Simulated assay, not measured.
Amino acid sequence: MRFFPWGNRSVTPELTLEQGRRLDSLRALRPREDLDIREGRMVVVDVETTGLNMQKDRVLSIGAVTIEHGAIDLGQCFECTLRREALPGASTLIHGLGPEALADGDEPSDALLAFLDYLGESPLLAFHADFDQRMLTRAFKEDLGYSFQHPFLDIAELAPLLHPDALPPRAGLDDWIAYFGLGVGQRHHASADALVSAELVLMLFNHARRWGTQRYAELGDQCRHWRRSCSAPGF
């Protein structure tokens, strides 16, 4: 099959003609932040990677869960493993993706196109969102030549913002899972982490509405203010 470079980029991934057409159709997406958290569609995402170096490590799998009309829609879930060369290291013990699973994964460009199609115009939430956002942004640039612009809301900031006396500000996902008594069958698996994160989001959204906050963008503004206050001297 013949391959075609797509778009005007300094490093241009080679895409098939069909992949290029799919990407062009998805470029028209306009990510939204002006959503009512009671009704709008949002996506909770988690990625597993080769490691924690945001400059060098790579995305291995993506798990995502849709929240819409104030509930988790289990009919709208996403999961994929990207075909990567297996790298030896301790990270395999965490994400559990061995050489066979990675060899059987989806071609990275196809996997990312499928995720972008699933995502649509929906904004995202993730626990420690900066990591997921930066890793996905790199993957989209390297494997598709696409500038990923979807907004993220950090659950790790949203939780202590709404429950300031519950746990220390830097508490991890496991701490919040235990605090709210959420059941989780598996951790460090993209889909399972996305699902339990979505359950946590719903509990936080209920609290936000009691505060009088109804919109995704408002929560983003409040998280940015919380982040600045945490960096202030004496915090």
Rank of each mutant, 00 (worst) to 15 (best):
R2G: 05
P5N: 11
N8K: 09
V11M: 03
P13Q: 12
E14V: 14
L15R: 09
L15N: 08
T16C: 12
E18V: 13
R21M: 12
R22C: 13
L23D: 07
D24P: 02
S25T: 15
L26I: 06
I37T: 12
E39T: 13
G40M: 13
N53M: 04
Q55Y: 08
K56Q: 12
R58M: 01
L60F: 06
A71W: 05
A71H: 14
A71Y: 07
I72D: 05
I72F: 04
G75W: 02
G75V: 01
C77P: 00
F78I: 05
R84M: 10
E85D: 14
G89W: 14
S91F: 08
I94K: 06
G98D: 15
P99S: 11
P99K: 05
E100H: 11
L102E: 13
D104C: 11
G105R: 06
D106Q: 14
P108L: 08
P108F: 07
P108Q: 09
D110A: 15
L113T: 05
P123M: 08
A126K: 08
F127S: 01
F127V: 02
D132V: 03
M135P: 00
L136Q: 02
T137H: 08
A139G: 01
F140Y: 14
E142D: 12
L144H: 00
H150R: 07
P151K: 03
D154W: 06
I155W: 01
I155C: 02
E157F: 07
E157N: 09
A159S: 12
P160R: 04
L161Q: 00
P168S: 03
R170N: 15
A171M: 13
G172M: 11
I177N: 07
L182D: 04
G183Y: 12
R187E: 10
A190Y: 03
A194Q: 08
A194R: 07
L195R: 13
L195S: 07
A198R: 03
L200N: 05
L200K: 04
L200H: 06
M203H: 14
L204F: 04
F205N: 01
H207Q: 15
A208Y: 06
G212L: 05
Q214C: 12
A217G: 03
E218L: 09
E218T: 11
L219H: 02
G220M: 11
Q222T: 00
C223A: 11
R224K: 10
H225D: 07
F235H: 05
F235P: 00
F235C: 06
F235S: 10
